[in-house]
Design a protein around this nucleic acid. Structure first.
Length: 299
DNA sequence: AGGCAGGTGGCCA
DNA sequence: TGGCCACCTGCC
């Protein structure tokens, strides 16, 4: 990784100090698929941005290419959730009567929900069906490399895992499905292709959807091919700040079955239980349960 | 070496 | 409404 042209490290001026493990869980725990670490330095891409994060002398620091330094300084805090008071949010979760949630909260201090670009979050989770995080990251990196613009004009600046932005939805609409399949997307290529065509035919649809309340936004998203309950909830939680969204994937299904005695419950039933039990911040609770369950492999 | 993976949609009773 | 299964393909 060439580092000659990065700006100097800046202190991350937000009230957040996760351990290296929790930082990894935030950036690479299944919310986002565009971060990778190299010798303790995390490099991540979103929208037209690329940034690096690291922990030095006990404090988090960041840097970006000079050409986008000001923009990243403005947008990185929001991306990392700095608009919200996370200690207060976590404190308001119904954990006092919930020993397992208490245990999960204690295990991941500093775990947050990222606020990612809506359209990119949709693309990421359209790729996620029956795929592990590493593979989703590979698909998106390939898609970016083949069909996205270089993130900076100087190609020597950012090398390695990925140096290109994700293609926008208008760009995706112009890509034949066969070319998408060449990016290891498999059967997801058809969903992405059809979604891209739909969005191209409905300008403003995505932005309007992002601004709707949770229930209406979810119903709209589920009109898209390849978007069911789970993907819609992920997009709204990680890409629109809808903290009441409660995505039920296999890990959350296992978590609720095992820790809340919901053996045999269907995903839709578990989702309803989650929203009722964990309340308006169910998505936050979900992320802690998810991280715990994935780390403990069902034990 | 194969089964399986952070689902969805379509088809059938 | 509820259950089953095909869909692609590369990791563990």
């Amino acid at each position: 990784m060439s580092t000659a042209s990065w700006s100097i490290w800046q202190p991350l001026d937000i009230d957040w100090a996760p351990s290296p493990e929790v930082l990894a869980e935030n950036l690479d725990g299944g919310q986002a698929f565009r971060w990778h670490s190299d010798n303790g330095v995390w490099t991540g891409l979103w929208s037209e941005n690329v940034a690096q994060l690291c922990l030095r002398d006990g404090a988090h620091q960041w840097r970006a290419p000079p050409s986008m330094h000001a923009r990243v300084a403005r947008e990185l805090p929001r991306y990392l959730g700095a608009d919200l008071d996370w200690p207060a949010l976590v404190d308001s979760l119904p954990s006092r009567s919930d020993p397992h949630l208490t245990r999960c909260l204690a295990a991941y201090p500093g775990l947050r929900i990222l606020r990612q670009p809506f359209g990119e979050t949709l693309l990421g989770f359209l790729c996620s069906a029956t795929k592990q995080i590493v593979q989703i990251k590979q698909m998106l990196a390939l898609l970016a490399k083949q069909h996205g613009l270089p993130v900076v004009s100087d190609s020597s600046l950012v090398t390695g895992y990925s140096s290109h932005r994700l293609p926008t939805w208008p760009a995706l609409a112009a890509i034949p499905e066969a070319d998408l399949r060449a990016c290891q997307l498999g059967f997801r290529a058809r969903f992405i292709h059809q979604t891209a065509l739909f969005l191209a035919a409905h300008p403003g649809w995505l932005t309007e959807t992002e601004q709707l309340p949770y229930t209406a936004a979810k119903a709209r998203l589920m009109e898209l091919p390849g978007v069911g309950e789970k993907v819609a909830d992920c997009v709204l939680l990680f890409g629109a700040g809808k903290l009441e969204a409660f995505p039920v994937d296999t890990w959350v299904l296992k978590s609720l079955a095992r820790r809340y005695d919901l053996v045999g419950w269907k995903p839709a039933q578990v989702a309803q239980f989650g929203r009722a039990h964990f309340g308006p911040l169910a998505g936050v609770a979900q992320q802690f349960l998810f991280s715990w369950e994935r780390a403990h492999g069902g034990r």
